[in-house]
């Protein structure tokens, strides 16, 4: 069961829709327009995941929200921000200045809500569009280095596929970047591919 480029295109569209919904929610919550950029989707291996972070991001002081799911698909999703992006996000929501913002547990708690909004939109849209019902864990908020974040979560195992999308948006000239990672258990992969195929076959998006 292979993931083809057509599948990737579909996943990309779904993530676009998820990002659009997240932006809309963030807009209505902060009262500010959210400028979006096209997220680029890749399918990678666990080793490549670590390499990606080593090459593209700050390695320590990351904030992450994790949502694990089970059902027709089992796996886990993560949204990872650098502390800088995290504090910019919180700034956009709480009207605090850079000086006042001391990133600690209080702000972290705020970020867990905002990060959750974004993550839910992404995962929710995928589940909705593929018309599958998932069972979710309570969202887990973690800070630390990329190693700590990835290893604290046992669901990111070695056998499965990893979908990586970098979302980039800006709120009032504050550039915010977050990495969205979706891990699908190897056992679930055939079902995942099947639902993608079904989706393509039926010409696209189901109306709900």
């Amino acid at each position: 069961m292979e993931i083809t480029s057509e599948h990737i295109d579909v996943i990309q569209e779904m993530i676009n829709i998820g990002v659009g919904q997240a932006a809309n929610l963030l807009n209505s919550l902060s009262g500010k327009h959210v400028k979006l950029s096209v997220p680029i989707v890749q399918i990678i291996t666990p080793e490549q995941l670590l390499d990606f972070f080593k090459n593209h991001s700050v390695l320590d002081n990351l904030s992450s929200v994790t949502l694990t799911f089970s059902g027709p698909l089992s796996g886990s999703s993560k949204l990872i921000f650098s502390t800088e992006s995290a504090s910019k996000l919180v700034m956009a929501f709480t009207d605090q200045t850079q000086d006042e913002l001391d990133f600690d547990e209080i702000q972290a708690e705020t970020l867990s809500e905002i990060g959750n909004i974004v993550l839910n939109s992404l995962v929710g849209s995928l589940a909705n569009l593929l018309n599958i019902n998932l069972n979710y864990s309570i969202p887990l908020y973690l800070t630390g280095t990329i190693d700590q974040i990835l290893s604290a979560d046992l669901s990111f195992k070695d056998d499965g596929i990893i979908l990586l999308a970098r979302t980039h948006f800006s709120i009032e000239s504050l550039a915010i970047e977050g990495d969205f990672i979706l891990f699908i258990d190897l056992k679930s992969v055939p079902d995942f591919v099947k639902s993608l195929d079904k989706f393509i076959q039926e010409g696209g998006f189901f109306t709900k």
Partner: peptide, 10 residues
């Protein structure tokens, strides 16, 4: 749908 969080700050 997935769980929703309401933090103390917001």
């Amino acid at each position: 749908g997935p769980p929703v969080v309401f933090s103390t700050q917001l």
